[in-house]
Nucleic acid binder design. Structure first.
Lengths: 260, 260
DNA sequence: ACCTGAACACCGTTCAAGT
DNA sequence: ACCTGAACACCGTTCAAGT
């Protein structure tokens, strides 16, 4: 409890586990004397985010960041403990702060707005969806979590119900982001009328998978417009919100309105 | 259209794109003469699945498979085009065939049974959830797809509605599988009363994130029993099914019954 | 205090040989 | 036909030096 004389604030963050020091900004004694570092954690993280945005999570490597900064890979270990910590820092940076919550509106409209806003962050940084799922323990992740809990408080949920709803909505955003990104990648040519579609239809019929065959034959299968799109995300979101309302004894007609 | 004299069946599969030949079993001219291979695609794939089950998708490497089989890495290229093809084959093998559909029952009970069965496959092979999302074009993936379309045909959906519902259910299984696996991994100690929880509460209060702070302080945050569990999966599934029913103008009381 | 360089164990993939 | 071995470009991480 003794206050220290130096300018370092006596923040509670200093009791965080070591791997969370840097993401909470309590790690490095500012180091204002001695040979100044040619680069800092900020530039490392910014470079990591750029690499991920351009070429995916696999491109967020210590080697790649070092190349981008013009230093050796091993120099990064002065600023970082491991590649895992780089991922922690990059995630929180890419997440950013959520938009301020508009005051009024129903819980379901608020939840829809939250989900769309998070979806937009995943769209800007698709590699976010490839990081492991963690309980939010970093500043920006917790700010998003707090914002969602705020809108859900206006809904018919008890505290555990809020957490379950939050997990469901978060999972949907993540799943939709992965699907949108992966299905947009070039794959086998599934356009209606293509040789592959005809072949697939024949193989499915041969194996008695008639219902999948019907979908393929109807040309519903290869339309990239039909899968993993924003419409799909919206449909799933409205379905989840309708389900939450229905299970709480409420009724919502026509789903949540589109915000914005 | 000319029938060939040799015993190779004139299957339509021979018109598939090359990267799908092996997974459909139409690739290698059986090669019954000449020096027999010491190992085949079957043993490669079985080894790959074992590696993934034991140590995750990152462990499914050509190097690891070769080590397991006692051959050099480069020898695998006789049987495989790339690591990607290994992933395609391993996924279809781990997915297996879906269980035969029980005859009667409501569409929602059938959909719940389908989701639980797929969830069980993801539990047995957690690395499945890390593979990229693809439209099903392999035999077992298509069999699962066909099974789900079969139960959804009994529900209030038009063909595009069936596809949207299928995407939503598939995404939920995947998201729940990832969350369950990742949250089960050892992380920072978030037990109620731990130093981290106290510190986090203080930091959140300091930043005005009062609703997240309340969750943390109430001890709802660190209970591993509360997040990513089978209960969470069930809750989300029932919510989605209730939402699908509600949006189709139906009403389901109390969610879908638990099968089994 | 900060960075470099060598070293090690690990990847996927290509190509030239061996049998 | 099948496998080995060398080579190349790429990883994360540790340790001993350099300035």
């Amino acid at each position: 409890m003794a206050r220290r004389a130096d300018p370092t604030p006596d923040v509670p963050g200093t009791r965080l586990p070591p791997e969370l020091h840097r993401v909470w900004g309590v790690a490095p004694p500012p180091a204002t004397r001695g040979p100044r570092a040619g680069f800092g954690v900020e530039r490392i993280v910014a470079t990591a985010v750029e690499l991920g945005d351009a070429r995916g999570l696999a491109a967020i490597t210590l080697t790649g960041v070092a190349r981008g900064l013009g230093v050796t890979t091993t120099a990064l270990y002065r600023h970082l403990d491991s590649r895992d910590e780089l991922h922690v820092l990059a995630r929180d940076h890419a997440l950013g702060r959520p938009d301020p919550e508009p005051p009024g509106g129903s819980w379901s409209a608020g939840a829809a707005a939250w989900a769309l806003a998070l979806r937009a962050r995943y769209a800007a940084h698709p590699w976010l969806a490839d990081l492991p799922v963690r309980l939010p323990v970093t500043p920006n992740a917790l700010a998003w979590f707090d914002a969602l809990l705020g809108v859900l408080r206006r809904g018919p949920f008890d505290p555990p119900g809020r957490l379950r709803a939050a997990a469901l909505l978060d999972g949907h955003v993540r799943a939709a982001a992965v699907a949108a990104r992966d299905l947009a990648a070039p794959g086998p040519p599934l356009q209606p009328g293509s040789a592959l579609v005809a072949t697939l239809g024949a193989l499915l019929a041969e194996r008695g998978l008639s219902r999948a065959a019907a979908v393929v034959d109807a040309g519903l299968y290869g339309e990239p417009a039909g899968h993993g799109t924003d419409d799909d995300f919206r449909h799933g979101l409205d379905t989840i919100l309708a389900g939450l309302a229905a299970r709480a004894g409420e009724t919502v007609h026509g789903g949540a309105p589109h915000p914005g």
